[in-house]
Design a binder for these strands. Structure first.
Lengths: 142, 142
DNA sequence: TATGAAACCTGTAGTAACTACAGGATCAAG
DNA sequence: CTTGATCCTGTAGTTACTACAGGTTTCATA
């Protein structure tokens, strides 16, 4: 009458939290070690026991990571949330700074893509030795 | 009548190689340690002494890194060059694989950019607590 | 030739964000 | 009570460098 890991609010094991969130076990322990996740209660034998709030928080962290926020950015975000008195402006500042980062990365990669395409275009991929790509990769060959 | 570091083909110091290539000293030593750069000759006192071929090779490595090739990809490329019997096709294969990687990264970042923009749009950045960005970052808040 | 600062040497440890063990304890089912 | 799955801690590995500490060499100047 219940999922194996959640028997009447007794809390769930790290394994089942891992399965539900898609975050692997070592990573959950890692987040605890670096202080993103709070220390959970333990069973008599010392096994970690998680509740709903842990799952929510871990979900938040994972979502942020998917969106490319760094651990330190997430720490700031969580600090605001934990403090409880954050404003929209504070949160938006973090998000906007991050958006700028992402846009810069896109621009860099696009430049890179063009160069790689150009470099590759010079080469027909044949059996001939002395590939023009190699030459192109030597800066100002003289 | 000569640059301080290059006295009559005697080879240049790691410091001047660093300056000419823009690659910092620790990194040059690191490339040597991992086998990308060959061990250079040494002075009587044990200081590294580089020639033109080292500068060319280091230039190649740096250029590849700028283009986002990983150290292992560069190792493959250099292996082909060092072997001397590479074909255009082999080189192009490495470059094309890398170009695919870059394009995948661009696509991912663009998706991310859209999401961050959407998330940010919900927020007016005001003084109000309870920012909608935070809510958006909790996955399926129920 | 002596001196002293700048550059160099080796080896180790730190960075980001995890992942992967080793070696042992606990849990849940039968 | 046994057994196999899961969990525990602690340490080391990953990528591509960077940053020391503590000591030696070089080289321009006095």
């Amino acid at each position: 009458m219940s999922t194996p890991a959640t028997i009447r609010g007794a809390g769930s094991s790290i394994g089942s939290l891992s399965q539900r969130t898609g975050c692997n076990i070592e990573t959950i322990r890692y987040y605890e070690r670096i202080g993103l996740m709070p220390e959970p209660r333990r069973t008599a034998g010392g096994h970690r026991s998680y509740g709903k709030s842990h799952e929510r928080r871990l979900g938040f962290i994972r979502r942020c990571r998917e969106l490319g926020f760094s651990i330190e950015e997430i720490r700031v975000l969580l600090g605001l949330v934990d403090g409880g008195d954050y404003t929209c402006g504070e949160v938006k500042a973090v998000a906007d700074r991050h958006l700028d980062d992402v846009r810069r990365k896109i621009a860099d990669l696009k430049k890179l893509e063009r160069t790689l395409k150009d470099v590759g275009a010079a080469c027909d991929g044949g059996q001939v030795p002395e590939c023009p790509i190699i030459d192109a990769l030597y800066p100002n060959t003289g």
